[in-house]
């Protein structure tokens, strides 16, 4: 089997999630990596992809049409390459989820989303019902289209490989869609999905200012990423890309500190694979305590500043 992996990259660097996806893909077959993008940044990303241990070949598709990874442009590029491959594998990121199903539909393949493990050549496990059940599924399709949950696989070594880079011919612009803008949150803090420690705040944090005053100092002290519950995002305490859960980001850090979060199943879906979970909540019956390794029943407005001070 030969597998085509879609590389996620930014400013010429390969994102960590792709390293996990390469590990998953290598369990299926020989890995070729596709870098789609534009100009210098794409070339640099292709160089970086060629150094990933386990990558046997890099395909570089460089064209203005791929600069923003519009699925209307990128999916036909991939579909066009799939004659030579048995499987297409993307990360279950907003980008991968956007592109992979278009590829699957064009290949007449039923995609397997968000896999947690590779059990056999065509057999995989994946979470369903917000992670309340794990299904083992086997594909009967001629080719595979898969998205990978990054936190379920170790990262491949970023250095050590020396794959050849080939140019893939671009398919151009579909003319169906155009990129207008990106409003990105600026943060000096570690990336939420790959941070070793995450401090998350919930609805109890009252407003954006309070969230910042209470959560940020603790996160800074620990060198942690900041996360949030849906309720906190809905209420405007922090922007959408901080949401952890079934419909937000999936995290599995060494340490997850949930502050003023009740522990709804949709939130747990995004963090219950964390190594150690700490919960601070004033309600001793809050469901978060059922999965927390260490629980502190306390008013967070007293406990968190005290904790920040004592660490």
């Amino acid at each position: 089997m030969t597998v085509l992996v879609l590389v996620e990259h930014e400013a010429g660097a390969v994102k960590d999630v792709t390293l996990s996806t390469v590990t998953a893909a290598a369990k299926i077959g020989a890995v070729h990596a596709l870098v789609a993008g534009e100009g210098d940044e794409a070339s640099k990303a292709a160089d970086a992809a060629a150094r990933i241990a386990g990558v046997e070949k890099v395909l570089l598709a460089s064209d203005a049409a791929y600069a923003k990874m519009l699925p209307e442009n990128v999916a036909p590029l991939i579909t066009g390459l799939m004659d030579g491959y048995d499987a297409f594998v993307a990360s279950a990121t907003s980008n991968g989820k956007n592109i992979a199903p278009r590829v699957a539909a064009k290949l007449d393949v039923m995609q397997i989303s968000d896999i947690l493990s590779v059990e056999g050549e065509k057999t995989f496990t994946r979470p369903i019902y917000a992670g309340n059940a794990i299904a083992t599924v086997e594909s009967s399709d001629a080719k595979l289209v898969i998205t990978v949950r990054g936190t379920a696989f170790d990262k491949a070594e970023a250095e050590g490989g020396s794959a050849a880079i080939e140019n893939a011919s671009a398919e151009g612009d579909s003319g169906l869609s155009s990129f207008v803008g990106l409003e990105a949150s600026e943060s000096e803090r570690p990336d939420l999905t790959s941070a070793k420690i995450v401090v998350s705040g919930g609805r109890a944090l009252k407003d954006a200012e309070t969230f910042e005053q209470v959560i940020t100092p603790l996160a800074d002290k620990l060198g942690a990423a900041v996360g949030a519950s849906r309720a906190a995002v809905d209420a405007g305490y922090i922007s959408n890309d901080y949401q952890v859960g079934q419909t937000g980001k999936i995290v599995a850090p060494e340490l997850y500190i949930a502050v003023g979060i009740s522990g709804a199943i949709q939130h747990l879906a995004g963090m219950k694979d964390s190594k150690v979970i700490v919960a601070i909540n004033k309600d001793e019956d809050a469901p978060i305590f059922q999965i927390a390794d260490i629980g502190l029943v306390a008013d967070l407005f007293e406990a968190v500043p005290e904790l920040t001070g004592k660490l």
Partner: peptide, 30 residues
Amino acid sequence: ARLKTLKVAEPPVRQAGEKVGSVDELVAKL
């Protein structure tokens, strides 16, 4: 159907840990 579900299982259950009585105890645990 193109996918055959071979099995559906409960995810590994997480046991509730312990509650600490104070921030000092929490700091010690951490």
